[in-house]
């Protein structure tokens, strides 16, 4: 661990990402991005997939102090590949001084990361691409009005899962998919825990190769909660064990925080309108139990 990152006070006090972007008030994705950008810095080129963050920049306004390239929903990792390869060629042939180099960062939502862009992601990891893959996960196709994505959790109501029990499938495990590829680094983070996030970004920054930063992104309109609660929801995701904070490094998965005591998942669920149907007009005992048992099973394995 970087000894310089022990306390909140060690985090940057000035912020790089420009204010005035078009993200919603209380956006958990923007929260994570702004914390991450402070640490990665402006010597970066963000290669953006179609997502809410398509509109981070809209002509002639950009919040970035470094560079940015917009691609398409499926192929941000391939865009990062082209940029990385081109910079390597230019620097390798002495056509560009090394100090002009940039870190390539693919920035995608969970829909791109777990669905339409998964083969491009898999390909990039497989090729050993030297890049950081930042997925902000708001557990649905947020920019189009929160339809279910492969990352939508069990029981959540979305614009396409409005039935009595909400989303019928469980959340696809992006972290495990990455780990199966044996990348140099993978981590889960949440903007609500900036210190844990900072340590991981710091670690990722020092490595070379494919690196995943998977940020849970509480989404006020998509998850239906008051924007002021965005940080509290993120904290509850960690405290209830719904969102394990962990990293994969040197071939091992390590949990950077084991919630103890672990709060019941209901503490997290009941704060969000997308789960309201699980509590009223009457409790959906079965779905609530399934969600709790999935989380319990996860941690039983971790702590075994």
């Amino acid at each position: 661990m970087n000894p310089a990152l022990r306390r909140m006070k060690d985090l940057p006090s000035t912020h790089l990402l420009g204010a005035g972007s078009a993200m919603c008030a209380g956006c958990g994705g923007l929260l994570a991005l702004h914390e991450i950008y402070d640490l990665l810095g402006a010597r970066t080129v963000f290669v953006n997939a179609a997502s809410c963050m398509t509109l981070l920049a809209s002509y002639p306004f950009t919040p970035f102090r470094g560079s940015w390239l917009y691609t398409a929903m499926a192929s941000a990792p391939a865009g990062a590949q082209g940029v990385r390869d081109a910079l390597d060629i230019l620097i390798g042939q002495g056509r560009l001084p090394p100090e002009e180099d940039l870190t390539a960062v693919a920035l995608t939502g969970d829909g791109a990361a777990t669905g339409i862009g998964l083969s491009a992601t898999s390909g990039a990891i497989d090729r050993g691409l030297d890049f950081i893959y930042l997925c902000y996960d708001n557990e649905g196709y947020g920019n189009t009005g929160q339809q279910s994505s492969p990352a939508t959790p069990l029981g959540a109501r979305t614009a396409t899962s409005g039935g009595a029990h909400g989303h019928a499938a469980s959340k696809k495990d992006l972290f495990a998919i990455w780990v199966a590829h044996r990348p140099v680094y993978a981590a889960t983070v949440v903007g609500a825990d900036p210190l844990d996030l900072a340590r991981k970004i710091d670690k990722a920054r020092a490595l070379t190769g494919p690196r995943l930063i998977h940020a849970l992104a509480p989404c006020p309109p998509g998850w239906s909660f008051d924007p002021a609660e965005a940080v509290e929801i993120g904290r509850l995701a960690v405290k209830t064990g719904v969102w394990p904070l962990k990293e994969y490094v040197d071939g091992k998965v390590v949990h950077t925080h084991v919630p103890h005591p672990r709060l019941p998942v209901e503490e997290y669920l009941k704060r969000q309108g997308r789960f309201r149907h699980l509590f009223e007009p009457e409790r959906d005992v079965q779905v609530l139990a399934r969600i709790q048992s999935q989380v319990d099973a996860y941690w039983a394995e971790v702590c075994a």
């Binding site: 909140m8 006090s13 912020h15 204010a19 956006c27 958990g28 929260l31 900036p194 940080v231």
Partner: peptide
């Protein structure tokens, strides 16, 4: 003057210290 809890957790970089 806790340092920068509000500043860090403001998604919009709208609180400076």
């Amino acid at each position: 003057r806790c340092a920068w809890i509000c500043s860090t957790l403001c998604p919009d970089s709208a609180i400076r210290v």
